[in-house]
């Protein structure tokens, strides 16, 4: 009898927990929807070809985000080109080659800690090293290298986790038929680990695209009426332009900021969609 009522009580608890989880998820989604709704209502009327193809202006109806959008695309492409190879290869070394010495352990702990360092600190580092010491000035290259430092720990950690998850038997089977270590990594470990690596890359790039603090620190600019033509050119980026518009007194600029946020979200969504597609392809081929 006691066992019976105990069972009912346990089922009740289980049902309660399930509903609680649904509620929490729903709440998070609701807040997100509210944000997107508000931003869309304010921003969409301003979002047109003119907005995308104009430079910033003191007249809201003439203002656009061309320089900020192109600056962000430049920044993110270069950051990805720098951070992904370094991050993935570092993870391969740490997982596949490095002996488990104290030094390796020390490096691993440090990488994990670096992932939690506030982004402004990377900005200060970028200012001192890239902008001042290497004399790269306030260029897209300085920005991309600073952003790369910021997202490297995330990429390395995600890549390491996903390389570690590749079954050891896979490696041993390849070794058994005479494959070299390089062949094993190239043909088996990396392709199997690709989905996990890409998840890390998506998270890292999404972080880079929305970051403002390190960019302001290294001196990314607010008013730029030209598109960067090379890695050494000065630049601005979407979050900076959005921040500037929200701090203006005129209501129209606040609406422009909303339109900028919509564009930022779309860019983010497109980049993630590409990564998700590659990941999907990767898992299907296996």
């Amino acid at each position: 009898m006691a066992a019976q009522s105990n069972l009912a009580w346990r089922h009740k608890k289980a049902a309660f927990f399930k509903n609680f989880c649904i509620g929490v998820t729903g709440f998070a989604v609701l807040i997100l929807c509210l944000l997107i709704y508000q931003v869309s209502v304010l921003g969409l009327p301003w979002l047109d070809a003119q907005f995308l193809s104009s430079f910033p202006s003191r007249f809201p109806e003439k203002a656009g985000i061309k320089s900020a959008l192109m600056g962000t695309l430049w920044l993110v492409s270069m950051t990805a080109a720098i951070a992904i190879p370094i991050g993935v290869l570092a993870a391969v070394y740490l997982e596949e080659y490095a002996k488990p010495t104290r030094l390796t352990e020390f490096i691993n702990i440090n990488i994990a800690n670096l992932a939690g360092v506030p982004s402004i600190v990377y900005g200060i580092l970028g200012l001192a090293i890239f902008v001042r010491f290497f004399q790269l000035e306030r260029s897209v290259l300085s920005g991309a290298m600073t952003m790369s430092l910021l997202i490297l720990p995330v990429i390395i950690i995600a890549s390491k986790e996903s390389i570690r998850a590749v079954p050891g038997s896979l490696r041993q089977a390849a070794f058994a038929v005479g494959a070299t270590r390089w062949q094993v990594i190239r043909a088996h470990v990396l392709p199997s680990a690709l989905p996990g690596i890409l998840t890390g890359v998506i998270l890292a790039i999404s972080r880079a695209i929305g970051e403002t603090a390190p960019l302001i620190m290294i001196g990314a600019l607010t008013y730029v009426a030209f598109v960067p033509e090379g890695p050494m050119d000065e630049f601005t980026a979407l979050p900076i332009q959005i921040f500037n518009w929200t701090s203006r007194p005129q209501q129209e600029f606040h609406e422009l900021a909303s339109a900028g946020i919509v564009v930022l979200l779309l860019v983010l969504l497109m980049m993630n969609a590409v990564a998700v597609y590659i990941r999907y392809r990767g898992t299907r081929i296996k």
């Binding site: 430079f55 003191r58 008013y223 730029v224 030209f226």
Partner: peptide
């Protein structure tokens, strides 16, 4: 200064119309 920024931005915008090959940049530190 962010206080002076709107004026500098307006001047830079107008200057761009008369001297389009000069690259004026304004930061807010």
């Amino acid at each position: 200064s962010s206080t002076v920024f709107p004026i500098s931005e307006a001047v830079a915008e107008e200057f761009n119309a008369v001297a389009p090959r000069v690259r004026v940049t304004v930061g807010v530190s």
